[in-house]
Design a protein around this nucleic acid. Structure first.
Lengths: 352, 352
DNA sequence: TTGTACGCGTTATCAT
DNA sequence: ATGATAACGCGTACAA
């Protein structure tokens, strides 16, 4: 069942059928509706393979993932991100191909050959953890359109959450609820993500006239185990040095901290406030429920998709960096508004 | 940069270059290596678009998802499943396209047109929640290859976990640890998933000579809220009727139950044992950590991919149903082995 | 407004 | 072993 069959049935040339399908203005409305009728009747669908070859476009974009690296963020929000990308692409009749990068053992299966040089995809979206500098350079050298999910150094358009604003929101919230000695769990100094988030955290402290202590940031991974370990260490500090609130880099770190507090008999939120980046499905169900910074990963995907589509339309589009605002979800791991006043005075009096 | 450019550079016909690329035996090793040299030197990669048209195959398989329906299972394990599928496909040089089903408003973008009739993909993988009976019939009528993730009624090959065995494992574990009056949270009678799991649960009870009470299964959604509500209701039963252990359909239901137990001052695992299907990342970090049934979703994806590939190879392959064994992860929400003896006697003595 | 002829880049068939 | 030529199915100038 090809376009020729339709042409034969309609007693026209196949080029006419093609024009009808592509809604060319150079064909009469009468023949259009007549041929559409035949197309529907014969249940014809153009071969995308042939169309793609003729139009020299795959109408397909690739999403690069790294299966080897457990990238918790992507891992967790993958479904939403993909959903967002998909919904942006489907509008413009693009499809989404998922591809694992890296086959260290078989370089011939590298995505660069499989997808890019191949022209199997018209553009690429990838997380900044897979978009290394040299990789970006290579793609830029090929003038191949791509977008990063997450801030990146190279001259590339990207979408990300405003992590600085997020750090500020969490710290400002804790200060507003009367906490005065804030700590930050956990991360490595050189991570971009940490730098941004801690920057916002420090800014909120500075705005409140409080010192932004370097030691406020406890090093370590942002997982449950190190949240627990750091938590015990912190809670065992002498009363005068012990922080009364913590901003956690992840829900997992907060879980660990929660466990440590429970073991040490420290009341949350009374004696210790906890607020965390991200908002995992179980965060409403911890004891107490966790105050979190929710990030809309679906919209993140939409933004990435739309940005790439724009770039496909206009290859000379100037670089764009889109930042999405996170949203504070206040639950019970931070003191309530009413409690803040009384608690705050008492707490700060005792601590300082 | 086309195959013709290589042919010109090598002073041969393009058909010869094509044969070299496809490693045809009808070309001398000498010219092979000579032309491969030129290919590498000129950095040539065949256009997949042209290859696909000529070979009449997209070398692409589609994964159908439903963004509108919050299908918790897929949602949560999406990354792993995709990873598994991808790793199976890459071996055979297939790519994976993700596609959202349903555009109720625009039927012309239905995946049936976009992917199947189009021949944009050579085969399909989908969860049983999207593979409705009529949809299966339609695909079968087209003789289009596809695999279901999750058991399905239609004559279709599928992969799934052995839910019956899972129900049995959880119940048998509770019995082995001395619990005697088991309940089952939660689910609807007509759900296939529930039927299988509860079947295994009931079988374990029967094997232990215990009645498999119909009322053992408390109806409701398998989420945290209903786990909590059902939990309170159950814990408030008179001592003689109150179950001393529960198998939960999901981690979330278990969280709710855990919360209810804490509020009623019921000790877990001493006074109440809890074991749940699935093993979410936070289940080791609840208080107490949750005894779970781990399912290897990556392998599930691999199986689905491999099964589809086999079907692509041999369209007349007989139907296959592959069941993967779940794995019991014993944590602290069920009594320890040593405690089981003593507790069991006391408990059963009190209860019966 | 419709039809003709060729191009898209590759593979496959059949001569040589 | 190699080369010429015809598919593959569709899009599109250009001619009619």
């Amino acid at each position: 069942m090809t376009i020729q069959d339709i042409a034969d049935a309609a007693q026209v040339a196949k080029s006419t059928v093609s024009k009808v399908i592509n809604d060319s203005p150079k064909v009469s409305d009468q023949t259009k509706s007549r041929i559409w009728g035949i197309i529907r009747e014969m249940n014809y669908t153009p071969s995308s393979l042939a169309t793609q070859l003729a139009k020299q476009t795959s109408r397909n974009i690739g999403l690069l993932i790294d299966l080897s690296r457990e990238h918790e963020f992507l891992d967790h929000f993958f479904f939403n991100i993909i959903g967002g990308i998909e919904s942006a692409l489907v509008e413009r009749k693009y499809e989404l191909t998922i591809s694992n990068i890296q086959q260290p053992d078989r370089p011939e299966q590298h995505f660069m050959k499989r997808l890019v040089l191949n022209r199997r995809v018209d553009g690429l979206i990838a997380n900044n953890s897979v978009l290394t500098e040299p990789l970006c350079e290579e793609l830029l050298a090929h003038r191949f359109p791509f977008i990063s999910i997450g801030e990146v150094q190279s001259p590339v358009s990207w979408v990300d959450f405003d992590n600085e604003a997020g750090g500020h929101m969490l710290a400002a919230h804790l200060l507003e609820r009367g906490y005065r000695r804030l700590a930050f769990f956990a991360g490595e100094r050189d991570e971009k993500l940490f730098v941004r988030r801690f920057g916002g955290f420090a800014r909120a402290l500075a705005e409140a006239g409080l010192p932004a202590p370097d030691e406020a940031a406890l090093r370590g991974l942002a997982d449950t185990d190190s949240g627990y370990a750091l938590g015990l260490r912190m809670l065992d500090l002498p009363a005068g040095e012990r922080p009364d609130a913590v901003v956690c880099m992840s829900n997992y770190a907060a879980f660990g901290l929660l466990k440590a507090a429970r073991e040490r008999g420290v009341d949350v939120p009374g004696g210790l406030g906890i607020a965390a980046f991200d908002d995992y499905p179980m965060s409403p169900y911890t004891t107490p429920p966790l105050t979190c910074l929710k990030i809309d990963t679906f919209t993140l995907g939409v933004s990435a998709g739309e940005l790439l589509l724009e770039q496909l339309r206009d290859p000379d589009m100037p670089l764009q960096k889109r930042m999405l605002e996170p949203q504070l979800i206040v639950r019970e791991s931070t003191r309530s508004e009413t409690a803040a006043g009384g608690q705050a005075v008492g707490s700060s009096a005792a601590d300082f």
